[in-house]
Amino acid sequence: MATTLAKAADGAEVVEHAARIEHVSKSFAGPAGPQLVLDDITLDVAPGEFVTLLGASGCGKSTLLNLVAGLDAPTAGNITTNGRPALMFQEHALFPWLTAGKNIELALRLRGVAKSERRDRAEELLELVRLKGAYGKRVHELSGGMRQRVALARALAQDSQILLMDEPFAALDAITRDVLHDELTRIWRETQLSVLFVTHNVREAVRLAERVVLLSSRPGRVAHEWRVDIPQPRRIEDAAVAELSVEITEQLRGEIRRHGQH
């Protein structure tokens, strides 16, 4: 994966974007020939920007995230990211044979962090997700919300410029999800990280993002974009969040309805 860096006049490296998706299409082999899942997607994520990708089932939003993560190759088009992205899944994907702390240390180790620094760095990251003291805990001893927070700490341990999140809070209850939205917003603002966050939950998208991108379904295309200027910290029950959510939901319904009429 190419790292795109532009040289500024004074010689300092200026990063133009955290991820650039240019005219990307993806098709999979289906029973009736190749099936187009993503059609000519173009999308930039600026450094430090928080973008949510919103869409109904079958819009290929997870497929797009896999392409950006480098787990799969696009059929056409080009994707460049500034370094290897970190990826967080709907399932925590923590390794059950390691403790919470060692899971984070593995990410550090694979990135080449010296052994003597790993323990301290892992403790710091656990503190960042407010899980001080969970270092020695096994994965099965943690609650769902705590597991996702350790997974977030592990993703942060990769020290990537961009964090990809594939519906990471979808399996959590509403209150835990609220808390994690808050954590994520706080950490994003502290770390200046770029985030590309996939969800089918409109309110979640509006609660978190600076920019919401709506994908149409089958094939996935960029249908609409909104810039969210509501100041952070927001709450999911804020009137402004609700208002924009209504507008976006209306558009999303329209996209879904189109599939009912042939």
Binding site: R130, E141, S143, G145, M146, V179, P233
Partner: peptide
Amino acid sequence: VKDSTGGDMAGLEAGLDALETTAH
């Protein structure tokens, strides 16, 4: 980040953690 909402949420989070951690 030290606003009322954040503090609120931290307390909520601590409560959730305590409730959901299974006693062994």
